[in-house]
Simulated assay, not measured.
Amino acid sequence: MSAAPRIRTATLADEDALGRLDRDTWSTLHAVAPRPQPPYEPFYSERFGPRDHLVAELDGRLVGYLRLGFPTPLACNAHVRQILGFVVAEEARGAGVGRALLRAAREEAVRQGARRITLRVLGHNAPARGLYESEGFVVEGIMPGEFLLDGEYVDDVLMGRTL
């Protein structure tokens, strides 16, 4: 693999690869929705299209994405961006892909005029929480036992940072 991932805005042509990546990385470590089953829904939707996704490539192969959007449709909340999806392929973990996507998301949020960036992460996802903390995110709230996953109650952790 190459030294550094290439980060870019997604295109319509990325849709199939993004859908496959999403399905291949599905895990209750980070997903609260049931495992996707055929026939699969399109990756892009009316709400989120290519412009809302940053993708990471290593050696020309798509290995990660981050979906950046608004936490609510309210004008009074328009200064905040939220990470609404974040996936790195198993074989690309530890190669700086997640960190590069987070930093690109921060830059994009600033470019869009945002003052804050937030996210939600499952309490048992220690690797993701460690990455977020190392990039300046702090825990701003915990919803204890919010999800029942694999027979265990899991916290929903709200994290954020000022831009």
Rank of each mutant, 00 (worst) to 15 (best):
E41Q: 15
L84W: 01
A56F: 04
G49E: 07
E146H: 14
Y153M: 13
A126F: 05
T72E: 11
Y132E: 01
V80M: 07
G113R: 11
V139A: 08
R103S: 03
E46A: 15
A114H: 02
V138C: 08
V97F: 03
G130E: 11
D59Y: 04
E90T: 12
C76K: 14
V63D: 08
F137G: 04
E107D: 15
G85L: 08
L102K: 00
Y65V: 13
L66T: 10
Y65R: 09
E140G: 11
P42A: 14
G123Y: 03
D52R: 11
L74D: 11
A105L: 00
Y44L: 12
L66G: 11
E107A: 15
R103N: 08
F86D: 00
F86W: 00
R129S: 03
R61P: 06
D150Q: 14
G123T: 07
A75E: 06
A92S: 12
E140F: 03
L58P: 05
G141S: 09
V63N: 07
I83S: 02
P50G: 04
L68A: 07
Y44F: 15
E57S: 13
Y153T: 10
P73H: 04
G123W: 03
G113T: 08
G94Y: 10
G113F: 05
G98P: 00
L102F: 00
R51E: 15
G64R: 01
P144A: 07
F43G: 01
L101P: 02
E57A: 13
Y65Q: 10
L122F: 14
L62I: 14
L84K: 08
R115P: 04
A104M: 10
E152Q: 15
P71R: 09
R103Y: 02
F147L: 10
L102C: 00
R51G: 07
M143N: 14
G145P: 03
E107F: 05
E57P: 11
M143F: 15
C76P: 10
L101K: 02
G96P: 08
V97T: 10
E140D: 14
H53F: 15
V55M: 08
A114D: 00
R120W: 04
G136V: 07
F43H: 11
L149S: 08
F48Q: 02
S134G: 03
I83F: 02
